[in-house]
Design a protein around this nucleic acid. Structure first.
Lengths: 104, 104
DNA sequence: TCAACATATAAGCATTGGCTTATTTGATTC
DNA sequence: GAATCAAATAAGCCAATGCTTATATGTTGA
């Protein structure tokens, strides 16, 4: 079961911020490190955790490691949330509108 | 900002299970305690955390305290997730179907 | 081949967090 | 009004966690 790992992985603010950064586009460890006030090992450790939760993927190129958001990695979390959407019906309407806006 | 609290609150498996139980309906602390293998204080502590994150509400009646899922409490989390839905377009289709099924 | 570089891993430390037992607070009942 | 009960709070313990510095691994280019 991977779901618990997802919650845990996103619970830490720094790690969640790393994920959010990667959502803007693929990035190497050092580029990523430049954006945060923690050491390179700390970044690598966060990336390992996110990767273990299936949230990011690694693409290795020589001595560089490029990380990016794994497509669908958040799906288990989204499904969990959906299970409890019943508890805010008014939101569903809003979401429906958003989706409607996506159609051609 | 309440969002970080939500992630943290749901990260612990026991606490998340408490929330899921409450989703099935309002429950007193002792009823809740009966469902888990932890002490009454542990339950109270989890409830306090969930409440602090805006996920559950308390209704006091005499010496009993009834807890239930706060409507809309998960909305910030849902919104966060929605922000990254772009990363699995195929899921959106599935979700649209679910919502479609909800219409009369 | 060796020096510089990018990243990962190891080890240690301080803090947080979830649990327990003990106690307190407050409401009910005899 | 004393005993009982539901729940909250206090205090302390231990494991987990996020960070650091130091070191290892592997790649590139002079």
């Amino acid at each position: 079961m991977i779901e618990p790992d997802i919650f845990r992985a996103l619970a830490d603010p720094t790690r969640r911020a790393v994920f959010e950064r990667l959502a803007a586009g693929e990035m190497s460890v050092s580029e990523l490190k430049a954006k945060f006030a923690v050491s390179q090992p700390a970044i690598s450790q966060h990336l390992a955790t996110l990767k273990g939760a299936g949230l990011v993927s690694e693409r290795r190129e020589g001595r560089f490691a490029y990380y990016s958001v794994t497509p669908g990695g958040l799906a288990p979390l989204a499904e969990w949330v959906d299970r409890y959407r019943a508890f805010w019906p008014e939101r569903i309407e809003k979401l429906k509108d958003v989706l409607k806006g996506m159609e051609p």
